[in-house]
Write a protein that binds this DNA or RNA. Structure first.
Lengths: 139, 139
DNA sequence: ATAATTGCAAATTTTTTGCAGGTTC
DNA sequence: GAACCTGCAAAAAATTTGCAATTAT
């Protein structure tokens, strides 16, 4: 369980309980859209406004706490910054699961970008398909 | 040079010149946002409406002609459907370049998704960084 | 001739902004 | 106490919709 107050302060932001609520909800669910966050967070803190969520998502991205996960055909989701991983995105249920990268892919990405003299800073791998649960249900 | 009329009909859509204009502009520039497309396309065809672009982008995605490229921190761009490739996205100039995948990555993706019993349908690799041109300029 | 498509204008949805009052450090 | 944050309401931006006129096949 992350200590959100510490995390926020370590990244130069004040530890308001709105922010802690937002982080808590995102960590609990893993990947959430703005609307998802709003719906969850107002259960705990009904007066928390959408504007505050928007402002803080931007701020927390700038301060290296949150990361955007853009998804084809859907609204972006947000997750806590963590070590590099891929996303397995189920096109049936909309679920997103993290999957650690092998270092193999990393080596390939570096090799390929070096060929283009491209300075690689961030990788983002989304694999779309059907998760195990939905395969069972759909059958 | 693609024959857009053939491409459209082959995919079950009527070959209107609005659609052909849209496809032409996208192919010429490679990757474009809705707004990018609009600005380019009205140069040739000033009465073409934004609503038509929205409607057609959705239709053409459903019919396997266009693909969305969602990008962190920006509006999605759209490209013609083509063989699998990665995107090198320059965070300085916003440019997007295609880079063919080695089959190596593909093998790894399949291996990793199989571990999770995930049925893999589509891959999307975005590599963010600074392109050669912007590195020179910035120096 | 028929069914699909366009462009407009209006509606809806999403995101951003300004600012007064409240909170954190 | 100073700087930063929040929530509200309003504004702006992005996307969708309905429909009459037009166009492709």
């Amino acid at each position: 369980m992350t200590d959100y107050a510490v995390l926020l302060k370590a990244n130069g932001l004040k530890a308001t309980f709105q922010r802690m609520n937002i982080l808590e909800v995102i960590e609990k669910h893993g990947h959430m859209s703005v609307e998802d966050i709003y719906e969850e967070v107002i259960k705990v803190h009904p007066s928390l406004s959408l504007a505050t969520i928007y402002k803080n998502i931007i701020l927390m991205q700038e301060n290296g706490i949150l990361v955007e996960v853009p998804i084809a055909g859907k609204k972006s989701k947000y997750e806590l910054l963590k070590s590099d991983h891929m996303h397995l995105i189920c096109t049936e249920c909309g679920g997103v699961e993290d999957k650690m990268c092998l270092d193999k892919t990393d080596a390939i990405f570096h090799e390929l970008t070096e060929e283009e003299h491209f300075k690689l800073n961030k990788r983002q791998v989304n694999l779309y398909g059907v998760c195990e649960k939905c395969q069972e249900t759909g059958a």
